[in-house]
Design a protein around this nucleic acid. Sequence first.
DNA 1: ATATACTGTATACAGAATAAACGGTTTCAC
DNA 2: GTGAAACCGTTTATTCTGTATACAGTATAT
Lengths: 260, 260
Amino acid sequence: MSNESKIDNEEITKLPSGIALSWGFIKQPKRGPKGELSIDKIVDAAIQIANQDGLAAVSMNRVASSLGFTPMSLYRYITSKEDLLVLMQEAVCRIEVPPLDETIGWREEMRQYVLNSIRLFQIYPWMGDIPVSGIPMTPNNLDFVNWALRTVRHFQLSDYEKMSILLLLSSYAKSVGKLSADFEQAMKAGATLDTIRGNDYTGALKQLVTFERYPYLYHVVQSGVYTGDMEPDEIDDFDFGLERILDGIEHYLNKHGQKD
Amino acid sequence: MSNESKIDNEEITKLPSGIALSWGFIKQPKRGPKGELSIDKIVDAAIQIANQDGLAAVSMNRVASSLGFTPMSLYRYITSKEDLLVLMQEAVCRIEVPPLDETIGWREEMRQYVLNSIRLFQIYPWMGDIPVSGIPMTPNNLDFVNWALRTVRHFQLSDYEKMSILLLLSSYAKSVGKLSADFEQAMKAGATLDTIRGNDYTGALKQLVTFERYPYLYHVVQSGVYTGDMEPDEIDDFDFGLERILDGIEHYLNKHGQKD
DNA sequence: ATATACTGTATACAGAATAAACGGTTTCAC
DNA sequence: GTGAAACCGTTTATTCTGTATACAGTATAT
């Protein structure tokens, strides 16, 4: 757990505190009472609260109280709430990457990667609410990047092209995952499916969306398709976009690179 | 500005307050002193603050103070801060849609739509921080949807397929736009480009990313490509993904639908 | 003239993050 | 074995947030 022994290099100490903590770089106390708290306990408690009531409900007070301590006690283990958010996101990314299977093909590999990313946002709806401060640099997050790079290992493309493909895949996964999570979270907060879809407001929309101002939207609203399209459970919508993306990648491969 | 005259239907009154306000449904006062404040002034002030210091800096106190009033005065015009966020996002979406040009083709039309969406997130970095509570239902936002539907007007596809394409395009735009905005905002907050890219931490990463644990990531980190890839200004990365998406759509068209 | 409706303000409250100072407790150095 | 240092968790206090409530002043309709 502790990488204390390897902290020879001062490069490590330059890392942001949250990232350093995620790699296990903690000054191990020699003296004093052994703590009853721990980073793991704190992070687990915070994750549980976020799962139940959303990221906004994660306050130092609430986390500490759920563990039976006072808010300030947490600051013995983390330097700020920002650290806590980094560690939460990192802890949740500890997934098992499916073993390498050379027979399924890169399309299926990418599908698994993207669907897994999306599912992460669905299981932990608060993940998309954490602001990204830079490129992934924490261990479990890098496992994800490593996995993504595995899917393009046979492409005869430049590293920059490969990274651009990763950006495309992860961007779509994040956007769609967060969208799905937002809807599910809204429902947990009491909203009905009809409210989120806008089905409850179809009557108002049909009055407001005039043909003069919205010539192309008009008939989609009038037919009721608009207020019934974006369905969080129907993975079909997401699959559709993903397959188009994979088609686009395949098309690029046929032109600019050879696969296998 | 006021749509008071059309409020006959009770369907309108069922709308969420922020959305009702965005359509101009305000009870026009008949008696009493005329207000010195107005929704437009409040929203403009809030947008200016968000532009300068981010969405987190937008507090009722700060907005009111910048206008020379007390926080509570704002509640005479909006019912909650949530309303304010809705109105901010809506106000910023008032863009001029390029006139219909049947000669440029759907690919160029989609490019314009996506790049315009991305640019919106870049100009107003706080837009991606506003939680989405449902499908677009405010006037300017619907202009965007209408524009997107215009790009697929000649596709012989079902409405559901068209909506899925819109979802794909807007998802990518949002994800990439927010990513770009996050980086730019981090730089405004004092971070250097090397910090965001991770270039300052390349030394640490080269120690931490071992070949044993990250076989595919390893050489990308060692070669320095990993810490230099995601560049906010280089629109090339975004363009690459967009062109793959357009290729995928075109491929689908050739198989399942006819264009024009 | 007067009742009514509307304005913006002042006050209060629950909750947020965290800085600083504070007793207790454990362990190392001598 | 003893003193000093290190560390834990708490307490206290500060400065924020959004907003519910009560209030004084003002302009209009009747």
